[in-house]
Simulated scan of single mutants.
Amino acid sequence: MSIKQVAKIAGVSIATVSRYLNSPEHVREKTRRKVQEAILQTGYAPNALARNFRRGRTSLVVVILPSVGDPFFAGVMRGIWRVAREEGYSILIRETQFNTLEFDEYSDIVFSKQADGIILLASTSPFMKEGNGKLGKNGGHKGEKLPPIVIGCETVAPQLSHYPSVRVDNESAAAEATRHLIRLGHRRIGFISGLHTSLLTRGREQGYRQAMTEAGLEVADNWIAEGRQTIEGARGAVHYLLAQSPRPTAIFCANDEMAMGAMHELRRAGLRIPEDISVLGFDDIRYAEVLDPPLTTVAQPAEEIGEHTMQRLCRAIGGDDIGGEPEIVPHRLVIRESTGAPPAD
């Protein structure tokens, strides 16, 4: 069925049917009912692609994230999908695997206006590389304008700091978690960070350092190890920390995936958790509660972050000025059995 047949049955012009399909609020109620009845009678289904093209929209959002297999990002994506469905958007996902995307990989999609907006989940932007001769600070090659960008979770590069974001206060959350270990009696607390080149876990390291300094405790350089935000990276970091003398009595991991790797490697070394060494994570992924022992961690509201990020992007796509300030969502410390008092010296 065509729009022409719908117009004929409804007794209105093709322009009126088109106006109803694109901006029903601009059509009188009596006329709306006629068009609705004609559509039901004919079974007419408008061509969404063509309609979006006429409106200058594609209803497509690009989401760029480090790893689709990361349990935390899976939670964030659930929130994004939920709002996307409600708002009529499709999602195109690009996984970086913690690497920087090449500019040309997604530039065609973005600058040919095949995407209405971009969400960066703890990822650098492939559309903002300075010094490559293709892209300036705020726009694209030959002056093309970038669509709206919203960052979910942490800003991972200084040049993205002016973009709006939705996240927890990482520094405050990590300081609270470190204070929990200090209250238990720990004085030698190790920290497993993410990639040293990324800002992703830098705020968490700053919070750890802040709490240690406030308590008058030393932050030894050999008690901080890079875990690359992965299970495998954390296992290597544990080997390094256990080789120190004196070694830490507790290890704070900058995410739960690294905490899982750390716990595995500590058990392989014959250490009991928390009797011999405590472990604390960050994110409260779905596996944290069922680990052996259950993991003490900082809970981030992953789905809420995803929902708010997508909602903020939708407002920007609609023309609202959403500003560049971060939206801070609440965290909470979840205390479980992986932390306890330090062993007697």
Results as ranks from 00 to 15, higher is better:
9 I>H: 02
277 I>C: 04
9 I>D: 00
166 V>Y: 05
276 D>W: 09
214 E>Q: 13
327 E>P: 01
143 G>D: 01
342 P>R: 05
53 F>Y: 03
248 P>E: 05
139 G>V: 10
171 E>Y: 02
318 G>V: 08
61 V>F: 07
139 G>D: 07
163 Y>C: 15
289 E>I: 11
25 E>L: 09
294 P>K: 10
31 T>R: 06
199 L>T: 01
282 F>Q: 05
227 G>L: 15
144 E>Y: 10
209 R>C: 05
339 T>S: 15
14 I>Y: 11
253 C>M: 02
131 G>P: 07
72 F>G: 05
36 Q>G: 00
193 S>N: 15
243 A>T: 02
45 A>L: 15
303 E>Y: 06
126 P>Q: 06
204 R>K: 12
87 E>L: 14
128 M>T: 13
152 G>L: 04
68 V>H: 01
290 V>C: 06
198 S>V: 06
289 E>C: 12
53 F>V: 09
186 H>D: 08
271 L>E: 00
227 G>D: 00
317 I>W: 05
152 G>M: 08
216 G>L: 11
284 D>W: 03
98 F>R: 13
322 I>G: 09
265 E>S: 13
40 L>M: 08
271 L>M: 13
336 R>P: 00
180 H>C: 10
233 G>S: 10
71 P>M: 12
28 R>S: 15
66 P>D: 04
87 E>I: 05
278 S>D: 01
168 V>S: 01
323 G>L: 13
249 T>E: 00
130 E>I: 13
254 A>H: 01
319 G>N: 07
116 D>R: 07
